[in-house]
Amino acid sequence: MAIVSARAARQHQHRASSGWRRLRRSQGWVAALFLLPAGFGFALFYLWPALRALWMSFTDYNLLRRSGDFTGLENYRQLVDDQLFWHSMWVTVQYVVINIGMQTVLALAMAVMMDRLTRSVIVRGVLVLPWLIPQVVVGLLWLWMLDPRLGLVNHLLEMVGIGGQAFLGSPDQAVPTLAAINTWRFVGYTALLLFAGLQMIPKQLYEAAAMDGAGEWRMFWRVTLPLLRPVLALVLVLSVVGSFQVFDLVQVATGGIGGQPGGPANSTLVIYVYIFRQAFNFNQAGYAAAMSAVLFVLLACVTFLIMRSLRGSRSDLA
């Protein structure tokens, strides 16, 4: 649909007189005027700090001394040798893969079920409830519920005979546990986004498919999924970028109450926690800025790859 309208607009433009063009230019001014407040906020709160951080990454800026000398690429060189940096990257990737895998599959299933079975506003409302809870509260809530000895979850597991698990206390289970907690929080929200995408798919396609003898399963793979692709790509980009930036959940829920976040044995040291630690515990803002810069480039690449591989900017409906 987007392509059709763009083509129409282009044809329209060819026919346009010079008067039209002048009006269009003045519309540009009006548009710029409308964009000004947002642009101002963007420049002040995003662009400027980002540029400043980029500059900082080339210095040995110390947070307490509020100054730093230009050191060139020293931070980046140090970063290449920093085992903990690569370790935290690896932990983050594991977390993202488990989190996004679980979250997307579940959300898709929920969205399709909602689309085919119910239109209840209450169900939709309940789905986003976890998303409305602040992440810090989510972290504390699950920390208590998942406590290996005193937590509710292990109590239930023991009652049904599965036996207690260490969850956040075990180096093997900690990352999947965090991913599951985050999935719990975001799955409803993601499902709603996908649900909105599903509603854009014309119903007659399902009718036609049904007449051709396709079952629900086949319709899902042949109709729903291909037509949902642009929305799915957008949702994936948003959730992958969001997932990479996990911080508060790990900071609060790992290491126990009063403990060092990222434990046990650095098994949950995600990149943002490490960046935070370097900047605000060790005061090495320059080094932390260099890590952020690398993460920025990485996330830009991931976004590009997802959009590209899923052809996220084009729809098959056209």
Binding site: R149, L150, A166, F167, G169, I257
Partner: peptide, 19 residues
Amino acid sequence: TPLGDLQGVGFTELFNAGD
């Protein structure tokens, strides 16, 4: 107590709970 048990609500709570 194993390390995993110390990553939750903490040892003081365990002591107070009689664990």
